[in-house]
Structures are given as structure tokens and as C-alpha cells.
Computed example of a mutant assay.
Amino acid sequence: MPELAAFAEEHKDWLQVFQMPSSSTELSATEGIWSLLMRHLAGLRRRRSGTPHPA
């Protein structure tokens, strides 16, 4: 993204850019917890709507 790099360079007097590590379940236990919660909520929605569980 050259436009973003140019913008960051042009405004470096007030803008700081930090490179963050990519998201990984090995790096963050929270990711795994969110995954479990979302699967649980999807199961609740299927049960309430009567939609069968995908095989």
C-alpha cells in the first residue's frame, strides 16, 4: 500500500505507525475463547430456528 506509506511518511511529525503481529490462536488464548463462544451461539440459533446441524 504505497499510498498509506506515503501518507505516514508525510505526517510522521504527529503520526506513529506500529506493526502488530498477525492474529493467531497460538499467540492469543482470547481468539480460541471467541471461537468457542461463536460456535456455541450459532448452535443456539440453529436449535431455536429448527435448522438442522450441518453434517
Score class of each variant (00 low, 15 high):
M1I: 04
P2T: 07
E3L: 12
L4E: 10
A5G: 03
A5D: 10
A6T: 13
F7E: 02
F7V: 07
F7N: 03
E9K: 15
E10A: 15
D13T: 09
D13S: 15
W14F: 12
Q16I: 06
Q16K: 15
V17T: 14
F18E: 05
F18V: 15
Q19T: 06
Q19E: 07
S23K: 04
E26T: 11
L27R: 15
L27F: 04
S28W: 09
S28N: 13
A29E: 13
A29C: 02
A29R: 15
T30D: 10
T30E: 15
E31H: 11
G32S: 15
I33M: 04
I33H: 05
I33T: 07
I33Y: 09
W34N: 07
W34L: 10
W34H: 10
W34K: 13
S35W: 08
L36G: 09
L36E: 13
L36M: 10
L36W: 03
L37D: 03
R39D: 14
R39P: 00
H40S: 05
L41D: 07
L41W: 04
A42N: 06
A42F: 01
G43I: 03
G43H: 09
L44V: 11
L44D: 04
L44Q: 14
L44A: 07
L44K: 12
R46V: 00
R46E: 05
R47M: 10
R47T: 10
R47N: 12
R47L: 12
S49V: 04
S49F: 01
G50A: 05
T51N: 01
H53E: 15
H53K: 14
A55M: 04
A55V: 11
